[in-house]
């Protein structure tokens, strides 16, 4: 048995153990079943919720998450590239970015609602707002690290400015961008969910706030589990892309 398999078994065993303890504690009444229903009950509620149409809310939220992520990445790279054109502009932008990266984004949610209303646009816009600064910052860093000798080589072979960007700049900053994309994805999921919790009639964020207010802890736990799963899957997809870069990178 390899170390890796053993590690996985230990991790899996830990979680199974945790679920068992939880179940036992809630069955014997140590845990208040209305605040911490056991895993069996949560599972039952989960099946029921999926039958009631939880998939629809998942689709709504996932659409917002993916749309705002795509906009944040494409827009962030474009803005980052534009800001990198001049050193002075980069310097000014970096100050502003530090500000954007350090403030809690949720403060601006009411402002967003006043500006774009409470429809899909608000969720997507807030998701983008929560994550794009990370991509802009990573783009600026990534572009600064591009090897000028490679750019000159591409130029000597007749590459057009667009070819130079897509075939030398972009691939050399991809590892930096992917790393940033994982952080951006987390911020983006948070942004979309908060926007949904604040003002919405559908989506996982709405369900979280609705079930919370109505004291339906078993339902709340199901939604939390679904959101966690979405987060893990998206993160693993990005990590898979990152691992594909490993083969050509130095020192890995």
């Amino acid at each position: 048995m390899t170390t890796k398999v053993r590690e996985r078994l230990v991790t899996a065993g830990f979680f199974v153990g945790l679920l068992l303890v939880w179940e036992v504690l809630s069955d014997v009444g140590v845990l208040n079943p209305s605040l911490a229903p056991g895993p069996r009950q949560v599972l039952g509620t989960g099946v029921m919720l999926f039958e009631e149409g939880l998939l629809y809310d998942m689709r709504v939220t996932l659409t917002y998450i993916l749309a705002s992520f795509a906009i944040a990445v494409v827009g962030g790279v474009l803005i980052g590239a534009l800001l990198s054109v001049s050193a002075t502009v980069t310097q000014v932008a970096e100050g502003f970015l530090t500000f954007l990266l350090s403030i809690p984004k949720s403060l601006f949610l009411p402002l967003f609602i006043l500006i774009v209303g409470i429809g899909a646009a608000q969720k997507i816009a807030f998701g983008v707002f929560s994550s794009f600064a990370v991509i802009v910052a990573a783009t600026i860093v990534g572009l600064a690290q591009v090897d000028h000798d490679l750019v000159r080589m591409a130029r000597s072979q007749g590459a057009t400015p667009l070819q130079i960007f897509f075939k030398t700049h972009l691939p050399s900053m991809t590892p930096t961008l992917l790393e940033a994309a994982r952080i951006a994805m987390i911020l983006n999921i948070t942004g979309v969910l908060i926007a949904e919790m604040y003002a919405s009639r559908e989506g996982l964020g709405y369900l979280v706030s609705n079930y919370g207010q109505n004291f339906q802890v078993d339902r709340l736990l199901v939604v939390i589990f679904v959101v966690t799963t979405i987060g893990i899957v998206l993160n693993e997809i990005l990590r898979g892309l990152e691992l594909r870069q490993e083969r050509w990178r130095e020192g890995t």
């Binding site: 000798d149 080589m153 591409a154 075939k167 691939p171």
Partner: peptide, 30 residues
């Protein structure tokens, strides 16, 4: 003037994310 003139640089200047084959065929790709 890539059709008449080629340059070989100091330090090879290969694109690290491309295989040998994709590096060699880069001028044709452009």
């Amino acid at each position: 003037q890539p059709r008449d003139l080629a340059v070989a640089f100091q330090d090879a200047c290969l694109l690290p994310w491309r295989t040998s084959l994709d590096n060699v065929s880069f001028p044709l790709e452009l």
